[in-house]
Design a protein around this nucleic acid. Structure first.
Length: 479
DNA sequence: TGAAATGTTGGGGCG
DNA sequence: ACGCCCCAACATTTC
């Protein structure tokens, strides 16, 4: 086997040129580099990217291809099971090395472990790197020597750990070999008819440049207010970096160092934001150590929970027609933009799981298909957190009251009015509970419950009691 | 990264 | 001045 063959740089969820250790190593190896992306819809099983994520992926790959071309190395696109595709590409190109940045999803770990073994057995160099996490699973261990199961000690350990290495710049130039592949437009990642992506195009700029611009804008205007502003869905107080982080257009190490740099020695200004970045790490570590997290309750006893199969309620929830303004606003924001404010996510998810008693897997699957930031670890860990069966989960008796939540976090109704235009003319003091508004107030605002806006699916107090009773009964049974 | 019920406190109106 | 009540504002407890 020739050690002088080209290097295949296999892109996965690291769609960037800066802070990309595998790319830097491939360039440093000193042979032609073939950047490769493989659309593998088979290996991930049910967790292949959903519809909104595919829209993002299309544009991110287009941006990456352009950036790579400008450096001299066109991106090669191939489709199929990654193992088969790589075999083929290695044979055709005479590659001597394959480099990639590690993924931590269970199917990816299994696949990559086998791949590395096979490539090495055939005399190739196969190397992987960390581009996706501040600290990889296994590098942060609890006092007992195992993985952390509670967030706060994890967060403390993360802060006490040696700072992650500073990010490297993008290579100046990439020497390329021959390259031919498929065409991105043939992959049909974008919606056909109807084209539902209008709201996504308006809300996002996928790609490394878009991610960097978003980060810069957030650091400039949002970092120091983040602790307060992030909870207010009607204001632009969150970073909106999640999809960029998911696809690796930004690396967490870039974000970490940039935030601390912006805080200029006053690290406490950056901590509320970095803490959220740490939740992303915590989820990734949980998934790595508990690979069935997306399918099975982390607390095994929850397998016996008496969920209901409320299809009518589930459909109303999906389309933002529950009659509870904050839930509906969140679900419509999701449908329109592929993203939902975190406060709304918690309330909407809690509503599905606790008010409707629909199994959390159903919400997990819907989010997977509709979120541009759909991330296996974050999605699974967060749904389990809400449902009460996850690690460090919300206690089962914590049941959000959607009306009180929007009164508290969207008092002026900016968020509700933006996503529920049919309620926009209701005065602030009735906007959060239209079912309780006097008839003349509704009429004045042009609202007809059951026609222009749904009547509430259920009574909050009764649903709360039902959820508490279900959890109580299930708990008694388990003991 | 709750909500609701219940308990406590303290200011102010009033006889 | 004093006791009494009301009630808002907190604090605590329970789910």
């Amino acid at each position: 086997m020739t050690a002088s063959g080209p290097t295949i740089l296999w892109f996965r969820q690291d769609l960037r040129l800066a802070d990309n250790p595998a790319l830097a190593a491939a360039v440093a190896r000193g042979h032609p580099v073939m950047p490769l992306y493989i659309l593998d819809d088979e290996t991930p099983g049910p967790w292949r990217p959903g519809a909104a994520a595919r829209w993002w992926l299309h544009h991110s790959l287009a941006a990456l291809a352009e950036d790579l071309a400008a450096k001299g190395a066109p991106l090669v696109l191939q489709r199929g099971p990654a193992q088969d595709v790589l075999d083929e590409v290695v044979r055709e190109s005479g590659a001597a090395a394959v480099y990639w940045n590690r993924c931590y999803e269970p199917f990816a770990v299994d696949r990559d472990t086998a791949l590395q073994r096979d490539l090495r057995a055939r005399g190739l160099e196969a190397q992987s790197f960390n581009a996706g996490l501040l600290h990889e699973p296994g590098s942060l261990k609890s006092g007992a020597g195992g993985p952390y199961k509670v967030f706060t000690p994890f967060w403390k350990a993360l802060q006490a750990a040696p700072a992650p290495p500073p990010p490297a710049r993008a290579p100046e130039r990439i020497a390329a070999g021959r390259a031919e592949g498929e065409r991105l437009c043939d992959w049909a990642l974008l919606p056909g008819k109807p084209d539902w992506a209008g709201g996504l195009r308006q809300a996002w700029t996928p790609g490394e440049a878009g991610g960097r611009a978003r980060l810069a804008a957030f650091l400039e205007h949002g970092l120091t207010d983040y602790g307060e502003a992030r909870d207010r869905p009607g204001r632009p107080g969150t970073s909106r970096l999640s999809p960029h982080l998911h696809w690796g257009e930004l690396g967490p190490r870039q974000v970490w160092h940039a935030a601390l740099g912006r805080a200029a020695g006053r690290a406490e200004l950056a901590l509320p934001f970095l803490r959220q970045l740490a939740w992303r790490e915590f989820s990734a570590h949980l998934l790595y150590h508990w690979p069935d997290l997306p399918e099975q309750p982390w607390r095994a006893a929850f397998a016996a929970f008496p969920w209901r199969g409320d299809d009518k309620g589930f459909r109303a929830w999906c389309r933002g027609r529950t009659g509870f303004p904050l839930v509906d606003a969140g679900m419509r924001e999701l449908w329109a933009t592929g993203w939902m404010h975190n406060r709304a996510r918690m309330v909407a998810a809690s509503f599905l799981v606790k008010h409707l008693l629909v199994p959390w897997h159903k919400g997990e699957a819907w989010f997977w298909d509709t979120l541009v930031d759909a991330d296996l670890a974050n999605n699974a860990a967060s749904w389990q957190w809400v449902a009460g069966c996850g690690a460090d989960a919300a206690p089962y008796f914590r049941i959000f009251n959607p009306a009180r939540q929007s009164e508290k976090f969207d008092p002026a109704g900016d968020y509700l009015r933006r996503w529920l235009p049919e309620l926009a003319r209701l005065p602030d003091d009735h906007l959060h509970r239209p079912w309780a508004a006097p008839a003349e107030v509704l009429a004045e605002a042009g609202v007809e419950l059951g026609r222009t806006y749904p009547k509430p699916l259920l009574d909050h107090a009764a649903a709360r009691d039902r959820a508490l009773a279900a959890y109580q009964a299930f708990r008694a049974e388990g003991t």
